[in-house]
Computed example of a mutant assay.
Amino acid sequence: MYKLPPAIFLMGPTASGKTAAAIALVEAGLPVELISVDSALVFKDMDIGTAKPDAEEQRRAPHHLLDIISPEESYSAGQFRTDALALMADISARGKVPVLVGGTMLYFNALQNGLHELPPADPALRAELEHEANTHGWVHMHAKLAALDPATAARLMPSETQRIERAIEICLLAGRPMSAILAEPGAAALPYRLLKIALEPSERGVLHERIALRYDLMLANGFADEVRALQQKYRLNIELPSMRCVGYRQMWEHLAGECDYAEMRYRGIVATRQLCKRQLTWLRGMDDVLRLDCLAADAVQQIKDQITAHLK
């Protein structure tokens, strides 16, 4: 075990301070390089609404896997795993330690546990499910998923229509819950000596306040103009993965006249809080995790101390 090269997972929900902590590690002189684990930060020109590290922050602490695809494109967990493994190998070969920082828990899971063979999409079954959803609504479909796969349903909100549909489809095609398939080993063990740190709030209400404050700062810093510019520069629609990102969907609906400014703000904050809840649910299901209070005054110092000890 101790002959394996070290690697760090720095995980946490949105607004838990992961980026600031990661930058602090670099500036403290630790021999680390940062790899972003975020399904929104991969998109070019999506900066304000994703809370992407700005140019100055990236100068101080470069991040891999930022700005790598167009908002017109898709990026899968499989692509992330391939890219991350190649970067980790290169970083380790240069005598440094990869620190994977972000909040896309599916990516962390895919990296550590590998990917699983899931049934391919079935157009006929999917058409049936969409008809059922149009007839009875997505709350009904969420309940249907809960009967088939309680563990997956607990992670999803009724508004996550595509994920609900896919999870039901997998359950019906495979004849067993998707969560059971994903719990099985999917690949050889990750060849690193891992330290998994989770930044979790001791008071979720404080994190909710941070989320609201950050969303208001995004709005004040020109989030609406950013989405308008994206619409002009790229061929986008609201069903693309980029525009399904939290905040972007709500802003798209506002710019399309589907809701006023106040409603857009409310929906955006609620969606971000729901994302936070899902991230914390993922983290609670992970084992071998060192859990630190992201609200602690010395949280960054605790992270530094734990990593320093891990590298000895």
Rank of each mutant, 00 (worst) to 15 (best):
Y2F: 05
K3N: 12
L4T: 10
P5G: 13
A7K: 10
L10A: 08
L10T: 12
G17I: 09
G17C: 07
K18V: 07
A20T: 14
A22T: 08
A22F: 05
A24D: 15
L25H: 02
V26H: 05
A28G: 14
L30G: 02
P31S: 11
S36T: 14
V37D: 00
A40Y: 02
K44W: 01
D47W: 02
G49Y: 04
P53A: 13
E56G: 00
R60T: 09
R60P: 05
H63R: 14
L65N: 09
D67N: 15
I69L: 05
P71V: 00
S74V: 06
Y75C: 07
A77N: 10
G78S: 08
L87D: 04
D90G: 14
I91C: 04
S92N: 08
P98M: 12
L100N: 09
V101W: 03
T104Y: 07
L106C: 03
L106K: 07
N109L: 14
A110F: 05
L111D: 05
L115F: 06
H116K: 13
E117P: 00
L129I: 10
N134M: 03
T135Y: 00
H136C: 06
G137P: 06
K144V: 11
P150C: 04
A153Q: 08
A154N: 12
R155L: 15
R155Q: 15
L156H: 13
A167R: 03
I168G: 02
I168W: 01
I168S: 01
E169K: 08
I170V: 15
R176T: 10
S179C: 08
A180P: 01
A183Q: 14
A189K: 13
R193E: 02
L194M: 15
K196A: 13
E200N: 03
R204S: 06
H208T: 09
R210Y: 12
R210N: 09
I211P: 02
A212S: 10
L213C: 10
R214V: 08
Y215V: 14
N221R: 13
F223W: 14
A224D: 07
E226R: 03
Q232C: 00
Y234A: 00
N237P: 00
G247A: 06
E253K: 15
L255P: 09
Y261H: 12
K277A: 14
R278D: 02
D287K: 12
R291A: 05
L292D: 04
L292C: 04
D293A: 06
A297D: 15
A299G: 00
Q301W: 08
Q302W: 03
K304R: 14
Q306V: 11
A309F: 04
